[in-house]
Design a protein around this nucleic acid. Structure first.
Lengths: 337, 337
DNA sequence: TTGAAAGCGCTAACAT
DNA sequence: ATGTTAGCGCTTTCAA
């Protein structure tokens, strides 16, 4: 069923049908009712492809999410959707795997959907100017910054927390609680991405406290999986290396780590303290409740969208918003001073 | 940048460019290289809308996910994506809120993306034949069945676990562990959906055991939120109604409930046992590990896609696959016999 | 091997 | 208030 057939069925022209369907004012009430009714009856649904092809870019922005299954992102996504809607924009969501290119996916999405701009949620930190030229529309990096690439600050926008500073704060909190042997649990210390930044913060905190980062206290898991975090923690304990605290790169990893410690007879927080970064909702309800650096998911999402729309409307140039992660004290860290 | 401009740039016709881009055989090697090279340079990306408009439906199937933030779904989605890819289909993912119509969203998606079929993940159980006619393509309901609608079995396909039977099994497990005062925690016992089915299973198990379902042991939360589950459980405990076990409609609700019990001084499983349905990965790692009826996420996803593709290829008619949820014994249920 | 041209379904001038 | 028509960017006959 297409607009032509529907027009014939109603005994009017295609433009009249188009007007009626799209709620334009210059259609008689009688005709409008008739068209709408018939459309309903014959299950007429406008073909978006044809619509997109002819009409001006709509007020639609795209969201490319890299890494399905990242629990932290769901809260950010919700905020992005909400803000976009409040500001009169439609959000087109697209998920990609961690091995796909968010730039290519974004460029394709922007073209095919005629988007006005893009929010990139989670991605690599190593773009070049040539890479981003691909996009063709304004874009905002959400939760990451181009720390390892050749891109100048003026050439893109971002909304993030300072990952290094947050990791520093987490580690520092453990140090100030009297811990000296602090293990770190993360996917990969040199992933050229967020993991690397958080590792840097951990290292710096130790160094500033006059401690040496120890190779044996670094547990890498290759991924953000629960399984990997559990096993890495078990191995760490089994290795016999002594530690009284652990910093996990993500809340979910911390949950698995706590369980691994528990299974190895190490009580949290009595025998070992655990801190993480993210602040997903479920870790408020676990036992023990997780002490973690809460990333402002709501603000990250809102900031990304408002920045993008300012960019689209030419109200401002590229900007970088840095937000603070705040400590949420749970029950997983013990003061040993 | 469009195909016309690119053609001009290369000094060939648009059709030649089209052939080169799409890998058709009848293009000289020289021209093909030139076109591909230029396309790269000028960041040419074909407009999908135009492409979709003119070409036959591609080998793409759509996935409409109702209820973002349902942790259980992420595992199913992964399986769906994987299976679709294995079988040579592209997956278009679309998320909608719980208050939106998956039928309308699916119909729109199918049209605009020229999809060959749809998987509906999570949805209402009360369609009519007129509703589904809207879709216009084969579809498979995943994780739910049309239990409350007027749709005949022959008119649609589904891949599910039997929710009533699973809830029955969960409740029965508590009964066989010697519990008599069993509370139930769920969003809404008459949501005309999965909640209602699970409530039915709970009720039936009690009745068959010669027990009367008690109004005061039914805690409704209106949503699947952690917060709601926590508060409802606190209220239940505060009401003074005695119970030694609780059946939660979802893993995440159980996590919040266990925390609520803990905060009220009720230990799990010593003072109160908890069982749930879902079997999401994280609840294997919580303390106590959750005893729950694990839904076969992988199989649900795989079954939905294979059924859909059989339908598309005309290899079979509508069918209904019922899978078994299996008990995963954790540490949250105590035998009191 | 290449080019010209006919649409795909729709919207938005421009006429009437 | 309604109809006519020119494209939107692309693929695909059909001719050359």
């Amino acid at each position: 069923m297409n607009i032509k057939t529907l027009a014939k069925l109603c005994g009017v022209s295609v433009s009249t049908v188009s007007r009626a369907i799209n709620g334009h004012p210059d259609v008689s009430e009688e005709v409008r009712r008739k068209v709408l009714e018939t459309a309903q009856q014959v299950h007429y649904i406008p073909n978006d492809a044809a619509r997109d092809l002819v009409s001006r870019p709509s007020d639609a922005i795209g969201l490319v999410v890299k890494g399905i299954g990242n629990f932290f992102f769901t809260a950010v996504i919700r905020a992005i959707e909400k803000t976009a809607e409040e500001l009169g924009y439609t959000l087109v969501l697209h998920q990609i795997n961690t091995d796909e290119s968010e730039l290519l996916a974004g460029a394709t999405l922007a073209r095919s959907k005629r988007l006005k701009g893009l929010v990139l949620l989670g991605g690599k930190c190593d773009y070049t100017a040539a890479d981003t030229a691909l996009l063709g529309v304004p874009f905002v990096c959400c939760t990451y910054r181009n720390s390892f690439g050749a891109l100048e600050d003026a050439a893109y926008s971002s909304v993030t927390v300072d990952d290094t500073a947050t990791a520093f704060a987490a580690t520092d909190y453990l140090l100030r609680s009297g811990h000296k042997k602090i293990a770190i649990l993360l996917p990969d210390r040199q992933d050229g991405s967020i993991g690397a930044l958080r590792f840097e913060g951990y290292k710096r905190a130790l160094t500033e406290a006059g401690l040496q980062p120890e190779e044996t206290l670094i547990a890498e898991t290759a991924s953000y999986s629960l399984h990997g975090a559990y096993n890495a923690t078990r191995r760490l304990v089994a290795s016999g290396t002594a530690f009284t605290a652990m910093f996990a790169a993500a809340d979910t990893m911390a949950v698995a780590a706590i369980r691994a410690l528990y299974d190895a007879g190490v009580r949290v927080p009595q025998d070992c303290s655990v801190i993480a970064i993210d602040g997903i909702s479920v870790t408020q309800y676990t036992i023990p409740a997780l002490t973690t650096m809460v990333q402002p998911a709501e603000e990250l999402g809102r900031g990304a969208v408002t920045t993008l729309i300012d960019l689209i409307d030419g109200r401002s140039g590229n900007r970088h918003i840095t937000l603070e992660a705040v400590l949420r004290e749970g029950e997983s860290v013990r003061d040993v001073r």
